[in-house]
Design a protein around this nucleic acid. Structure first.
Lengths: 136, 136
DNA sequence: ACAAATGTAATAAATTATGTTACATTTATA
DNA sequence: TATAAATGTAACATAATTTATTACATTTGT
């Protein structure tokens, strides 16, 4: 997760939360984040698959929240864009002839999963409405 | 943090914890993790700067814990190798003319810092002794 | 018919992460 | 004191990931 995907996703979602009745275009959103519109559309695609937004094609198309910002939690946004464990990757082939190497990845798995779970719980306490209420 | 540094560091520290009276060589450690010895020495350098290990040069040189595994916490290992925030990076130049873009990074900072703190607390509950006790 | 938008594939560029080579230096000991 | 075996580290190379860009088929309102 050494990327900007969560930051981008939460930025998008905040913009949508602030304009609940409008269909925002990827170009407009990209202008706020200052990244490429295609990147925005890709991320919106992920958020749509996760059921968090819906989008409309064609002229006057754009993107909207699929439900109230009060009913969306940061954990859901995170979960949608999360691709790796927070504590990082494991080494691929630790030595099976070593007592540590043999089991290390299984133990790291537990530790890494517990960590992800804790963070998820934390983010689950914050709604998108809470987060976006911080902005004017 | 989309790298193997924490996994590598904790592997090194577990090996050292399991042989508290020996000076393990980077070659031997590298053989257990199955990575390059130079990578091991680099990571040991970081752990040494953090005061977690000490090393000895020359023939019969190697590396040892600088104190008991009971007095070393996973949070310290994590903190030593951590270079970025867990939730990822922020976009570099969000639009200052946008009410969201103007403040987003400050808000993300809070959220990201809180998250790091929670994880750090969690890892602070686990000693290296606890972790390495899981291995035979 | 046209304009303006999405969706997506393909490719390029930039940044990070990992691996490797080389070698100066340190230290035990034959 | 010469040798062997280790660390520390710089410099460079390779691999992998992340971000940006181009192109275009398709959708939809007017």
């Amino acid at each position: 997760m050494n990327n900007t995907r969560f930051a981008t996703a939460i930025h998008i979602m905040t913009l949508l939360a602030k304009s609940p009745d409008e269909w925002l275009s990827s170009d407009w959103i990209a202008g706020s984040i200052n990244i490429n519109p295609v990147m925005v559309r890709k991320e919106i695609g992920i958020l749509r698959e996760a059921g968090l937004v819906e989008s409309r094609k064609g002229k006057d198309g754009g993107c909207q929240l699929s439900r109230s910002a009060q009913a969306i939690f940061l954990s859901e946004i995170f979960s949608a864009v999360k691709t790796a464990e927070l504590l990082g990757r494991k080494n691929q082939q630790p030595n099976p002839k070593c007592n540590i190497g043999k089991d290390i990845n299984q133990r790291l798995n537990s530790l890494f999963n517990e960590t992800d779970h804790i963070v998820s719980q934390f983010l689950g306490m914050k709604s998108l409405a809470d987060f976006s209420a911080q902005f004017t």
